[in-house]
Amino acid sequence: MDAIVVEGLRKRYGDVQALDGVSFSVREGEIFGLLGPNGAGKSTTVRVLVTLTHPDEGRAVVAGHDVAREANAVRRTIGYIPQESGVDRYGTGRENLMLQGRVQGMHGRELRARVDELLELVGIADAADRVVQGYSGGMKRRLDIALGLVHRPRVLFLDEPTTGLDPEARVALWAEVARLAERETLTILLTTHYLEEADELADRLAIVSSGHVVVEGTPAGLKAELRGDAVTVELVDGQVDDARRVLAGADAPVEATLADGRTLVSRVADGGHAVPRIIAALGGAGIAVASVSVSRPSLDDVYLHYTGRDFATEDSGS
């Protein structure tokens, strides 16, 4: 059975079409990634799935319940760990967890035991009775995660779980999420604008761009579909149009031109053999080359391939 089914979601805020027909489905027990730059519609999609936002059109079912018609049933089944924490900074970690559990209908010894268990699980038991204001960024994020898990949800939504964390804390959190997914037998939907995060964590993922899903698949499968290697050529001057023609003639057709106006990406069957050929061809045409690099397909390339845009540039530009 599918844990999440999303069909044709549309949502407009004023002049902005935040969602423009988002469709995908998530199987029970998997970690599913929604990958895309800021502003692509990932968070809005999650907000529809956790019943915060009403879509203008389309349908979504979470754990067998329609998010519009059976909102409260959905709310009992899901855990939501939002991008911005929403924790009560003036309360202690334990108080936050107790309140969250109570509104989910838990009480007494069962709730107290569950809260103790979670404080241990996410590693903030020592700080449980301290006011959250004094927590570090990583500790707050761990508390957020515990808050989403109190009532033993079946589906967990993690919106940008590692944004704002330093690289070390990020890697630690990845391990944590993978461990939780295992231990709590959860279906997890996570959004991220870090390609390596999706690559590391997600069993399957969907790339979201401009309010719709451009491609859906496993990270390995998506990369395998891009046969061959990416060759990135950086020119000294911006003779992009000439270079395109030359590269096409050298059996290395250009797939994309990056926003800096002097970097081209070509896809070739074998990077090692192509590089001398490319350099020779460009040199013969009088085009100066600053650098050439070869890379095996990465999610970056997958993104580039399906959207025609460079991920890093698009992400920082929005």
Binding site: V50, N72, P82, S85
Partner: peptide
């Protein structure tokens, strides 16, 4: 502002 209210809107809180 602190999204405290939103957190509870995603739960069955009254």
């Amino acid at each position: 502002d602190r999204k405290f209210v939103e957190r509870f809107l995603a739960t069955p809180a009254s």
